[in-house]
Simulated assay, not measured.
Amino acid sequence: MLKFAAAALVVLLSASSSGNALTDGDKTPIDYLPALAGDYFKLDSESVGRPYHIFVRLPQGYEDNPSETYPVIYLLDGDSLFPMLAPTHLFLTYDEQLPEAIVVGIAYGGFGEVNKRSIDFRTFSGEKNGNPDGPDKFLKFLKHELLPKVSSQYRTDESKRILVGQSYGGFFVLWSALQDPDLFWARIASNTSFGDERERLFSESSKSENKAGLVAIAVGTQDTQARQDFVKEWSRVWGESENAPWIVKEFVMDGGIHAATIAETYRQTLKWIFQDNASESGSQGE
Rank of each mutant, 00 (worst) to 15 (best):
D26G: 09
F41W: 08
N115P: 08
H53C: 05
V164I: 13
R187I: 02
A189T: 03
R57W: 00
E199L: 07
V252Q: 10
V72E: 10
S67V: 14
A226W: 02
D229F: 06
F194L: 04
I102E: 11
L146S: 00
T156P: 05
E233G: 00
S159Y: 08
G213K: 01
N191D: 15
N65K: 14
Q275N: 13
Q225M: 09
S205L: 04
T69L: 03
A278C: 04
A107M: 02
L147S: 02
F171I: 04
L81H: 12
I217G: 06
D229Q: 13
I188M: 10
R227I: 14
G256E: 07
L139P: 00
K211A: 12
R57G: 15
I247F: 07
H89T: 11
G195I: 08
I262E: 02
A101R: 07
D64W: 07
Q275E: 11
S151P: 00
A260W: 09
S17E: 09
V215K: 08
R227L: 08
E96M: 13
Y266T: 01
Q268D: 13
Y32I: 00
R198E: 15
A6H: 01
T93E: 09
P59W: 04
R267Y: 11
I119G: 07
L178I: 00
S235C: 05
V173H: 08
L2P: 01
K160R: 15
S206K: 12
L214H: 06
T269L: 04
R267Q: 13
E68Q: 15
S16V: 05
K160W: 02
Q228C: 04
G213D: 00
F121K: 00
L178E: 04
S208A: 04
I188C: 03
R236F: 01
F91L: 15
A226H: 09
